[in-house]
């Protein structure tokens, strides 16, 4: 069983939901990435989504765009990100790490090389925003047979047929984008989440994460009622941004702990 499947199985046993924070690798500086990942785990993260900086983050709002630009100033590309995961694995063998990013850095490294190197570095899953199922059938197969889960997005606009199609190639978990817009937008629609999740559950037995628009303990708690996992990205990046490099590690812990607690009260 993969680390991600293990993680969800254990959570189910204890009646808890997964907390999945997102940070961009290399933001604010590459030397802080492993420390930030460790801090996230200490504050209650079950899985870490690690953003691979890209020059043209089309699906991201201004907050994650800025974090990408900060990381790119330090020339943090996919190979650096893999090295950072390898570093993180020296002290953490159990927290799943999912790389989230765009197709071109993977295309530039080569799909096969990427899968090999990611597995070797200790990466557990990959979410490529602009690899929809119809453009990455062979990639998803290669990745899964090497032990790398392929996580796909679903949107409020995904039809039932589409959900079935995506569920077929997905593994690890499915990621429901809870709003129409880019990352960091403010308008989370809980009614929409409650309406769509049953449709997704009917099509797939994979755990469902919900993200885009979750900003605090209250919204995390309410999403945790419906979903198997809560993904928080832009709000954490904002904390890192405003704290500055010296205080970022402590600040993300302070920010994430109450969210963990609120989700666990949920039971």
């Amino acid at each position: 069983m993969s680390r991600i499947a293990d993680c969800f199985a254990n959570l189910r046993k204890s009646g808890r939901k997964a907390l999945i924070p997102y940070i961009t690798a290399g933001d604010p500086t590459p030397v802080l990435t492993v420390a930030l990942m460790t801090a996230l785990v200490e504050a209650g993260a079950d899985i870490i989504e690690l953003g691979v900086p890209f020059s043209d983050p089309m699906a991201d709002g201004p907050v994650i765009q800025r974090s990408s630009e900060r990381a790119l100033k330090h020339h943090v590309g996919l190979r650096t990100v893999l090295a950072l995961v390898q570093d993180f694995r020296k002290d953490n063998a159990h927290t799943p790490v999912v790389l989230m990013g765009y197709a071109n850095p993977i295309e530039a490294l080569g799909r096969v090389q990427f899968v090999e190197q990611a597995v070797a570095a200790g990466v557990d899953g990959v979410l490529v925003v602009d690899y929809p199922p119809e453009e990455c059938g062979s990639f998803a197969q290669q990745a899964q047979s090497a032990g790398l889960d392929t996580i796909f997005l679903l949107a409020p606009t995904s039809t039932e047929d589409r959900i079935r199609e995506v569920a077929k190639v997905g593994s690890g978990y499915l990621y429901y984008v809870s709003l129409r817009g880019v990352t960091g937008s403010a308008n989370l629609d809980l009614g929409d989440v409650a309406a769509h999740l049953p449709m997704i559950r009917a099509a797939s037995s994979l755990p469902i994460g919900v993200g885009f628009g979750i900003r605090d303990a209250e919204s995390a708690k309410r999403v945790a009622r419906e979903a198997d996992a809560v993904v928080i990205g832009s709000r954490i990046i904002q904390e890192i941004e405003s704290a500055g490099p010296a205080a970022a590690v402590e600040q993300v812990k302070r920010f994430l702990r109450p969210i963990r607690l609120a989700m666990d009260e949920q039971g």
Binding site: M58, A59, A103, V129, D130, Y131, P132, E134, E135, F152, L153, L154, A155, T157, S158, T159, R162, V166, V177, R180, G181
Partner: peptide, 12 residues
């Protein structure tokens, strides 16, 4: 060519 977009645009 192809359709390399986020799921949010597939329907549109």
């Amino acid at each position: 060519g192809g359709v390399f977009v986020a799921e949010t645009l597939t329907h549109a």
